[in-house]
Design a protein around this nucleic acid. Structure first.
Lengths: 350, 350
DNA sequence: TTGAAAGCGCTAACAA
DNA sequence: TTGTTAGCGCTTTCAA
């Protein structure tokens, strides 16, 4: 039935400015003008176009538009796939903020430990206005490629060796120092650390600060297990630590998500009550940290501020290609909850 | 400095197939052919193109390609903004599955209770291959518009009045019946319900089944409070219910996220131990339901299966416009954990 | 204020 | 196997 086919095909064609022009009896450029704010067009023509457009259900193809204006409204966002609630908040806030600025999110995900080079290759096939990398490792070679392609990039909650790529991170150094100060004031004896991914800058910063700042206070014997930022690994890491003959009474985890896992294992598998028998501390202040069931002591990375900063930097770079890369450290604070023993004496833990 | 400006501008231009052709000394179509699998091209030409492309850092513009092929690789996804962990899992799985099928996600979010018509208007400006609506209300008028625009649509975890729009949902009817059977076997006396958004089909199905199936068993006195699927409202709803003189000993919540909130409030604000003093049951089996801290009894909506089904239906519709709308009900199961009292007698709760 | 015409980066039909 | 040409849906000159 060739006839049927033809009908289908002609239906399938979406409505174009040309179609509207034909129906309205004006030129195609007139139609374009109507959808261009500030273009000079008479009320009469405008009316005809509005009617025809309404009748046909016409909407300008934003992608075709961007091809000629050379301005994209697409922002690429790369997220890790690890069910971390903190990133869900970040993504939701990014979406709201970006859409109110007229941008849309093209979403990419990368599996933990996956080579981000292949993903970047994929990303560079799209005409993006900018790119936001959340907790993703970016080799400096890729960083160069972004520069070369004039693609504005901001990293969130992680940074790269190359100073060329803007970043927005929490205050890892100060945060961990506050945490250590707090643990020391609480007279803890046996310190441990649950690490995130080895090659993440955030983990490096937190780990290095934790160990060096403890050493600075004369504590060298600190245990470590690797949680890789994932649920299963974090639980296993907790078991390893709690099975040590010298069981730790203070565990600092590289992020909240792992700290929550640690609380679960400590409480359920080792009958340890966090805040009494053991102190467990995280980093992020994610959506769940304040829940009654966890009451996690943590150092905050305020997601709203992180998102605002990241977007501001990105928009700046989009507007002015020569704007210099920025490295924003968003200040957080120690949030003391029940998962950690309190110092006996009055202690200004801020 | 007009010279500087010109340089900047020429740098800004991204590398096109034309540029590659010039450097390689071949036609622009030859370049296109090299990036078209199966196109006939000699090894010699290919080599020249590869070299030039490498040198210039060329990548085909996928958006420009889709303009002419009339095939989009963009799938729109609409998510609610309510930090529900279940949707995070769904999104992560969708992203993985879709990208392995060569599609990319264009992300849209809609605020709880927001009019989805405006959002749909926005969405229709993009040339999408398909659209996946997660827990979004779609007025049937919009449904028609999608049909008219030949935009394949699948709703997940919600459906619409119009039978024209495909949907993938959990088994709300059976699930709630199993839950009621289980609660009845556990000899509960005072039943309550925490409702989701009023205008969501999922809430309607679960609510109606809960009340009618209880009535069918002679129980008419059932309390209700509205949690709106959000953290704050769900907590407030729990307080309302637990403050009743006739305090419920069984609360069924329209989803897990609210059930987790209910557990929190019951335990922390009312010193009630879920599973002993009160039974709290949810629906979804989300990422947190199985955590030791909650041990939530629930009826599952297997996210992997939901995602697979949704994608399969969508791809079918993309390939064949005339494929009929499908309404898939993914089977789940009652997952009995500690948040609910167990029946005294042996009871086949499956 | 208007329409004709060129062109964004690409694919595809055609002829050579 | 190759290059020429037309055109996807749109914006933006340019002349009228």
């Amino acid at each position: 039935m060739p006839n049927d086919n033809e009908i289908t095909r002609s239906l399938k064609r979406s409505v174009t400015a040309h179609d509207v022009a034909k129906v309205a009896g004006v030129s195609q450029s007139a139609v374009s003008r109507h959808f261009t704010p500030g273009a000079s067009i008479s009320e009469k023509t405008r009316k005809k176009i509005i009617e025809a457009a309404e009748q046909l259900g016409y909407r300008p193809n934003l992608i075709a538009r961007s091809l000629i204006t050379k301005k994209s409204t697409l922002i690429g966002i790369v997220l890790p796939l690890n069910t971390n609630p903190y990133y869900q908040s970040i993504l939701e806030e990014l979406s709201q903020e970006l859409s109110s600025n007229g941008y849309r999110i093209l979403l990419f995900t990368n599996e933990t430990g996956q080579n981000s080079d292949l993903l970047m290759e994929e990303i560079l096939h799209y005409p993006l206005a900018g790119l936001i990398l959340i907790a993703v490792n970016l080799s400096s070679h890729i960083a160069d490629e972004c520069k070369q392609n004039h693609l504005p990039v901001v990293m969130m909650t992680r940074k790269t060796e190359s100073k060329e790529i803007s970043s927005v991170t929490g205050n890892n150094i100060l945060g961990v120092q506050k945490i250590v100060d707090f643990l020391l004031a609480g007279k803890h004896q046996n310190f441990a650390y649950i690490a995130g991914e080895n090659n993440s800058s955030t983990n490096r910063d937190r780990e290095n600060t934790y160990f060096s700042y403890l050493a600075h206070h004369g504590i060298y014997d600190v245990q470590k297990a690797i949680g890789n930022y994932t649920y299963e690994n974090a639980r296993q890491a907790t078991r390893e630590l709690l099975n040590l003959t010298k069981q730790p009474d203070a565990i600092f985890c590289a992020n909240d998500h792992m700290a929550l896992c640690a609380i679960e294992v400590a409480r359920n598998e080792f009958s340890l009550q966090p805040g009494k028998d053991i102190s467990i501390i995280g980093f992020d202040d994610n959506y769940l940290a304040g829940w009654d069931s966890f009451q996690l002591t943590t150092f905050s990375q305020p997601s709203k501020q992180m998102v605002d900063q990241a977007i501001q930097i990105l928009l700046e770079q989009i507007e002015n290609e020569n704007s210099l890369p920025k490295h924003i450290v968003v200040e957080g604070e120690l949030i003391v909850r029940q998962s950690s023993k309190l110092p006996k004496v009055v202690f200004d833990y801020k």
